[in-house]
């Protein structure tokens, strides 16, 4: 492969990733044929409600799906710079975890080991991945803590997690994740458990670090506001599948998939405070029994027989994104409901 193609090659390619869980009532298809790509330096937002499979997708990338209940189904492919990670040797996976792909989790309260100092926890990764001796690892750790905005890092190094606030702990998590200079950061709801003011700071920090380190970010969230601020591209997940991908501008201007439109309509509009909130009718179905045909059809205002009969593929939209919806082929079937208009644009 020549230099030019290598440059164009996406950093991370996920193809037909499926992760299933054995439960008493059958197999739960938490992630069912998800495909996307991530390029160096870009931020992809993975959006969806709880139960859509986004967290499981993230865990699957690193092979961290809880076994024996969960398993990545054969046929799934996760390629990092062309190297296949599904089914790879455990030692290779360990090198990738933290070293190339790092992860930040949602709950800073419980994601840090309560009996080890934060210094120890940050240093650990550095020593394993970057093979630095103890004293160098220590100064690196201090430097990282400072970089993420922890005051008096040289002292805080000896602190225990319970002595820090939620926002501080999340910063420590980020420091821990980035200490080994990964090329990809997977952030699973990094700000959901934090106060609103702290949220903004953390997002700011993430963007800053991304610019500085040139890494790609896979940001998983249910919060469209966060996506709007931080992402370059967005993939919307529903019922274990990706139902729409688009650039962030296109997505917010004209969401193609009815589910995306529904998500946006559910967000209160500060310009129209008296407007009634429109929730998407119905509930997210059980992962053991995804609906036939288009998985969204039971809750979709535009649905017709075709939707019940067959599941659409990811069809290309006019703007260049993709949408898993028959409306792309039959746009006249789109009904003019408030649901479908989305925020911004239509009066």
């Amino acid at each position: 492969m020549d230099a030019a193609s290598r440059r164009d090659m996406p950093l991370l390619e996920v193809e037909e990733l499926s992760t299933w869980f054995r439960t008493r009532s059958g197999d739960a298809h938490a992630v069912d044929g998800v495909s996307f790509q991530l390029r160096a330096g870009e931020t992809l937002g993975l959006v969806g409600e709880s139960g859509s499979g986004k967290s499981v997708t993230a865990l699957s990338l690193l092979g961290l799906v809880p076994r024996p209940a969960g398993r990545i189904v054969t046929g799934s492919s996760v390629r990092l710079r062309g190297e296949e990670l599904v089914g790879a040797d455990e030692r290779r996976l360990r090198a990738v975890r933290g070293g190339e792909i790092a992860m930040v989790f949602q709950e800073p309260m419980t994601s840090l080991n309560p009996v080890l100092t934060i210094g120890r926890q940050v240093e650990e990764g550095i020593r394993i991945h970057r093979r630095l001796p103890a004293n160098e690892a220590r100064s690196e750790a201090v430097r990282m803590l400072e970089r993420v905005g922890i005051p008096e890092p040289a002292d805080r190094i000896r602190a225990y997690p319970h002595q820090l606030s939620g926002g501080m702990r999340q910063r420590v998590m980020i420091a821990m994740a980035l200490a080994c200079r990964p090329s990809i950061l997977v952030a699973d709801e990094p700000t959901t458990a934090l106060d609103v003011t702290v949220q903004a700071q953390i997002l700011e920090l993430l963007l800053d670090l991304q610019r500085e380190l040139g890494m790609a970010i896979l940001l998983i969230t249910h919060d469209l506001g966060v996506v709007a601020e931080v992402a370059d591209r967005v993939a919307v997940m529903y019922a274990g599948r990706i139902v729409e991908t688009a650039t962030v501008e296109d997505l917010f201007e004209a969401p193609a998939h009815p589910y995306t439109a529904g998500l946006m309509a559910a967000v209160p509009d500060p310009d129209r405070p008296a407007q009634r909130l429109t929730a998407i009718p119905g509930n997210v179905p059980e992962p053991t029994r995804w609906p036939d045909g288009c998985r969204f059809h039971p809750r979709c205002p535009h649905a017709w027989e075709r939707c019940r009969g067959a599941e659409p593929g990811l069809l290309e939209t006019a703007a260049g994104g993709r949408s898993r919806c028959w409306l792309i082929e039959e746009p006249d079937r789109r009904l003019p409901t408030a649901f479908s208009s989305g925020t911004g644009g239509e009066p």
Partner: peptide
């Protein structure tokens, strides 16, 4: 089953550690 063990594994630490 705790979260911080998941974090430790996500850091790429050897299982023994």
């Amino acid at each position: 089953g705790q979260d911080y063990i998941r974090t430790a594994r996500a850091k790429g630490l050897p299982e023994r550690r």
